[in-house]
Design a protein around this nucleic acid. Sequence first.
DNA 1: TGTACATCAGTGAACGCGCGTTCACTGATGTAC
DNA 2: TGTACATCAGTGAACGCGCGTTCACTGATGTAC
Lengths: 228, 228
Amino acid sequence: MSNLRERLRSEMTAEIKQAARDRLAVEGPDLSLRAVARDVGMVSSAIYRYFPSRDDLLTALIVDGYTALADRVEAAESAVPRTDLAGRFAAVAHAVRDWAKAHPAEYALLYGTPVPGYVAPQETVVPVARMGVVLIDILRDGFSAGELVVSPDDRMPQRLREDLADMLAGVDRSGVPAELLSRGLLAWSSVFGLISFELFGHLVGAVSDHDLNFEYQIRALNREVGLV
Amino acid sequence: MSNLRERLRSEMTAEIKQAARDRLAVEGPDLSLRAVARDVGMVSSAIYRYFPSRDDLLTALIVDGYTALADRVEAAESAVPRTDLAGRFAAVAHAVRDWAKAHPAEYALLYGTPVPGYVAPQETVVPVARMGVVLIDILRDGFSAGELVVSPDDRMPQRLREDLADMLAGVDRSGVPAELLSRGLLAWSSVFGLISFELFGHLVGAVSDHDLNFEYQIRALNREVGLV
DNA sequence: TGTACATCAGTGAACGCGCGTTCACTGATGTAC
DNA sequence: TGTACATCAGTGAACGCGCGTTCACTGATGTAC
């Protein structure tokens, strides 16, 4: 059986990616292939048996990151009773923050300054859509249960309405009016705004207990979205 | 008079910083001193007549960036009638976004992934506080005019209340309850969340007309803060 | 079960490169008398 | 107004470095018969 070679190969691949993640944490987004090789005890050219180039290694880290984050978000949200809409949203928000705090360098890789000239791989679409589904499901459940009240807004530009209706192609948005999708998008942006502010050091003068602040703000956000 | 030398010196300093900003835009946050020198038509060592090291040049760009942003924010906000609270907040939000879109690389430098090991210079405190003052003034005016209704929230943790009361040391927060400061902080985070999402490419599948979306979301934010 | 051949992980040397920073220098501008 | 000296912007060579990637190689693992 060729299993030995295959198993070693996948273990080695994982080890390289982990070393790369660790490197990312200490020296930021310009990943050095040679440093990674050193860390796993290999000669630098050996990495090329596993990744055809430095960019491909980076791509793998990015895809892994989105997937890990989506996993955490889904797991946290599914553990909350379906009828507890605010609890479900809070679970999602805290899952993102917890993952970000546990993996700050990866968070920065996904949601910080994009590497110039580097285009996000198509494979990120799937995990990103998974998070979108979780969020939209909360909105739909709230709407169809009558807990989320939304009055049609005729000041919403038609173009924007169409954008929102087409967003996340392939994801079921049925029964969720554009007004609600827009609210969800704002809430989602706010969650990442809060987390980025905290992790990137923009709250240093303002807040000392970040846990308390985040929890309070998520409650406020819940109120604002209308999930109570 | 030594004015000639001094004038040339400050002109050259400005030219170097501008070249550095341009470089930033094409190759991201790892600024190359040699590339900057090439762009201004100097030999690389000549830069050291103006900046003692690469980090000092970066620092100058960061301080300049915050200052330019605070200038724009103040100018935009002060052009709106004092009683138009929602208009004042919208002016602030749009000023930030306009500046960010006009100077995306600088925005990323200030609000994107922090350079690991690099500590933000103390001089950024002043321009950051200036923006804080603008925001807090809006909240105070709204509160004292009775337009911003805020009921005391006894679920707000004491620790958080103290944090908010101490925030932006030296800035006048008199007459603005912690509940309102917290709302302001959330709104401020949301503005940057929206802008970062747009500039860093996280809305690509979701929204095509970013102007419309931002304008709509800022109106929603205004409603949420209570500025109508 | 044993042998011949194919696959492929890892080595080590080499490539060409751009980087930040230093240093002794030249020559123009500014200052003191 | 003219001369002697000080200041300082910019040059060019050199330093030591780490980088991504290539290539011919060795030796172990896997496959076919």
